[in-house]
Design a protein around this nucleic acid. Structure first.
Lengths: 229, 229
DNA sequence: CGACTCATTGACGTAGCTCAAGGTATGTGG
DNA sequence: CCACATACCTTGAGCTACGTCAATGAGTCG
């Protein structure tokens, strides 16, 4: 019984050998480079060997919504055939230097059709993305920004990450862009959590110092089943 | 280049013969009956022969968000293996009397794994759902309710439906529940469109009488490519 | 005809947005 | 090692879109 995830990692790692055995080229992206820029036709699919990328949607009024993060062992963007208009306003950007295996879209689709395991994993991955978007669109939508923020911090604190436990590597602007709220408003909610001794603010990251109190603020759909009594 | 769709219909119709040839039972649902109730473990997959169903997510505070509509020729809910917590708060309800072919979940998964065409269609269907949710979560989220409403009416007016052209069969409450806005606020936006001579309100349905003026209010991501100059 | 559901409109409160000014870590070049 | 620039964080004041509450009207059905 899974709760949503914003950070994807390792989902396709078991197929690394298979990917290496298929026609591809190794590619590197520098920090801040675009893996996939706005309005660009989608020609390649990447398997990420190292580094981390961020996917975001750009709105015509200048806002941007951060959708998800992708690190080692994941495939991006996917391999459906239908072309959707909204995809033209979605971009993907390297947050660190990255190494990827690059496949031509058609080649990758053939692999997807012929390798049963890849087919199954890809399908579950799409389902996971639907799950995340359902959570945002049908659940978070109704919460006030303070609860939205608590939920987000909880979900990130549940993501097994290298580094200090309780450390969430997001700037206040990142947080605002995930929650689709204003940066100032996000800062205000953070300051409330700080006053209540639940988090500590830092430059570029947030530290959760009282996870129980944080979980107590979260909405039911957010909590891991074992934390819901 | 597809724009989002809230109403699904006919996507799996070409496999009707195949579905009939596989172990299933015919089932009927009465209007307002639940195909899939809240918190219920998902045991069956349905192919809809006739009638229409609505899928919605229930929020703990009592709000409900309408996600999509499913009519003849579609399969519901899908066939991924992973279980997601949010799925427990999603329900599906018959809007009219319905006839469906009911498959055991495991049986359907086997069919999905062995029938290449079903596999491919299912994959595109998931991609289409992601597209709809991305549109809602990353685009509509930033629009004010009036623009949200115009976008919604435009998208519904683009759905090829039987019956009068320009007729949209949604109550004001339905509209509010799709847009995740308040019913009163939805009514106010509708009254503005009425004053401007773009729509006519009716009991249980809305009539678009000036589609050009409606399209002019829509955001860029919403319009069909051929309508964007 | 009465009961019910759906639509309309007004008054009022508030969460969150915008604008704006100042504070504090981090990095860079002299 | 210090001066300065830059990026990020903090806080305040005012505005507005939207939500809540409430009353009334207008089709539809038994």
């Amino acid at each position: 019984m899974l709760i949503p995830r914003y950070c994807f990692s390792g989902d396709f790692a078991e197929l690394y050998g298979f990917f290496l055995s298929r026609p591809h080229i190794k590619k590197r992206f520098r920090k801040n480079e675009y893996l996939w820029a706005a309005g660009e036709p989608l020609t390649h699919v990447y398997y990420i060997e190292s580094g981390i990328a961020q996917t975001l949607a750009e709105h015509e009024d200048g806002n941007q919504k951060i959708l998800s993060f992708h690190s080692a062992g994941t495939v991006f963007p996917g391999c459906h055939r239908t072309e959707f208009k909204i995809e033209l306003s979605i971009v993907s950007k390297a947050l660190s230097d990255m190494e990827v295996l690059s496949f031509r879209k058609e080649e990758f689709y053939t692999m997807f059709r012929s390798n049963e395991r890849l087919n199954a994993l890809m399908f579950e991955w799409y389902a996971m993305y639907i799950n995340l978007l359902l959570y945002e669109s049908a659940h978070q939508e109704y919460n006030h920004s303070f609860i939205k923020l608590c939920n987000l911090l909880y979900l990130f604190s549940q993501t097994p990450s290298e580094g200090t436990p309780g450390r969430i590597d997001l700037t206040q602007e990142n947080i605002a862009d995930i929650l689709t709220v204003n940066r100032v408003n996000a800062a205000r909610c953070l300051s409330r959590l700080r006053e209540e001794g639940i988090i500590k603010s830092h430059r570029k990251w947030v530290e959760v110092i009282n996870p129980q109190a944080l979980a107590a603020y979260c909405s039911r759909e957010t909590l891991k089943p074992e934390n819901t009594l």
